[in-house]
C-alpha cells in the first residue's frame, strides 16, 4: 500500500533531469519533496502520474504501474497554475470533477463545502479570469482534491500565497492527511517540510541528496548543535574533541559536534565554570544536513 520509485531516471536529450531516484512513500504519510528550481521535482511528479515516460526505472502504486485506470484515485495540483479563463468556477470544477468520475450532484455539494472552507463562497458563479491569483489557486486546489483522492500530489501548493492563505491551505492539507490520504508535496521552503512532513526527499540537480523519515534522517546524521548562553569565556571549547564548528555572538555560543556523546563532556566542562542561562542540545536543521551532503548552502529561490 505505497508508492515506490525504483532507479527512476529521466533524460531530455543529453540533459539528465532526474538521476536514479529510489524512494518509498508509505501509505497515509505526508511526504515532502524539497529542492530548488530545476531540482527535478516537477519532472518526478509528471513521471509518477504517467504524463512523462521515464528513461529508466519503474514506478508502482500498490504494486501496479500507474495508468489511466487508477487516475480517478489520484489528485494532482500542477506547479504551473491554470484553469479555463472563460469558464465559471462552478463549470470548471464540474468539468474537472466529472473527468475524475464524479457525478454532478456530488460535485456541487463538495464544491459548497470547500468554497466555505477556503472562505471564498462568493466566487462560485464568477468567471475564473475575474478571480485574483490567490483565489484561482484555491479553486485549482479544490479541483485537485474534490474527488477525495487517496493519493494527492501537490506541486508547490503554497507558492505565491499570502501568509494567511498559506495557513488556511496548510490546515486543509493536514486534515486531508488525517482523513487517510497519502500526500506528496513539493516545496522549496524547508520550514514547510519541517513543520508538516514525517518523510522527505531532498533533490539537488536531479539527484537524491537524502530521503526517508525526517527524525531518522536527523538521528542518522549524527551531528548535533549545542547552544550555550552565559557570561563566562568558553572560547576553549573549540579545541574539545568532537567539536566541528563554533560560532560566538555576544553571550551566545553555538557549537556543532559530530556525535551526541561529546555533549556530556562539554556540559561537564562549562558547569565547572559557574552559572549558565542555557545549555541545549538540538537536532540538526535540514539546512545543516543539506550543507553537509551537498557541500554548499541550500538555494532558496
Amino acid at each position: 500500500m505505497s508508492l515506490e520509485l525504483n532507479n527512476l531516471t529521466k533524460r531530455f536529450g543529453g540533459n539528465t533531469a532526474v538521476d536514479d531516484i529510489n524512494l518509498t512513500v508509505p501509505s497515509g504519510s505526508m511526504y515532502g519533496f524539497l529542492g530548488g528550481n530545476g531540482a527535478g521535482k516537477t519532472t518526478t511528479f509528471r513521471m509518477i502520474l504517467g504524463l512523462l515516460e521515464q528513461t529508466e526505472g519503474s514506478i508502482t502504486y500498490e504494486n501496479q504501474t500507474i495508468n489511466y485506470n487508477v487516475t480517478n484515485r489520484i489528485g494532482y495540483l500542477p506547479e504551473e497554475r491554470g484553469l479555463h479563463p472563460k469558464l465559471k468556477v462552478e463549470e470548471q470544477i464540474k468539468y474537472l470533477g466529472e473527468l475524475k468520475g464524479m457525478n454532478k450532484n456530488d460535485i456541487s455539494d463538495k464544491l459548497d463545502h470547500w468554497l466555505e472552507r477556503f472562505e471564498v463562497p462568493e466566487n462560485r458563479n464568477k468567471r475564473i479570469e475575474k478571480l485574483s491569483k490567490g483565489n484561482q489557486q484555491k479553486i485549482q486546489l479544490i479541483a485537485s482534491i474534490i474527488h477525495q483522492p487517496e493519493l494527492i500530489i501537490l506541486d508547490e501548493p503554497f507558492s505565491g500565497l499570502d501568509p494567511v492563505n498559506v495557513e488556511i491551505l496548510k490546515k486543509a492539507v493536514k486534515e486531508l492527511n488525517r482523513e487517510g490520504a497519502t500526500i506528496i508535496f513539493s516545496t522549496h521552503r524547508m520550514e514547510h517540510v519541517e513543520e508538516m512532513c514525517e518523510e522527505l526527499c531532498i533533490l539537488n540537480h536531479g539527484q537524491q541528496v537524502v530521503s526517508g523519515n525526517i527524525d531518522q534522517i536527523k538521528s542518522d546524521f549524527g551531528q548535533k548543535e549545542i547552544i550555550i548562553e552565559g557570561d563566562h569565556d568558553v572560547a576553549f571549547l573549540k579545541d574539545m574533541p568532537g567539536v566541528i564548528d563554533m560560532k560566538q555572538v555576544r553571550s551566545k555560543t553555538t557549537l556543532k559536534i559530530s556525535e551526541e556523546q561529546y555533549a556530556e563532556q562539554i556540559y561537564n566542562e562549562i558547569t565547572s565554570l559557574g552559572y549558565f542561562k542555557r545549555f541545549q542540545v538540538k537536532e540538526p536543521s535540514l539546512n545543516d544536513i543539506f550543507i553537509a551532503k551537498v557541500g554548499r548552502q541550500y538555494e532558496q529561490v
Partner: peptide, 17 residues
C-alpha cells in the same frame, strides 16, 4: 492552444488520456 497556454491541460491530462 488555450488549454495549453492557460496550463489547465496538465490537470486535464492527469485525469484523461
Amino acid at each position: 492552444a488555450m488549454e495549453k497556454s492557460s496550463r489547465v491541460i496538465e490537470m486535464i491530462v492527469s485525469s484523461v488520456h
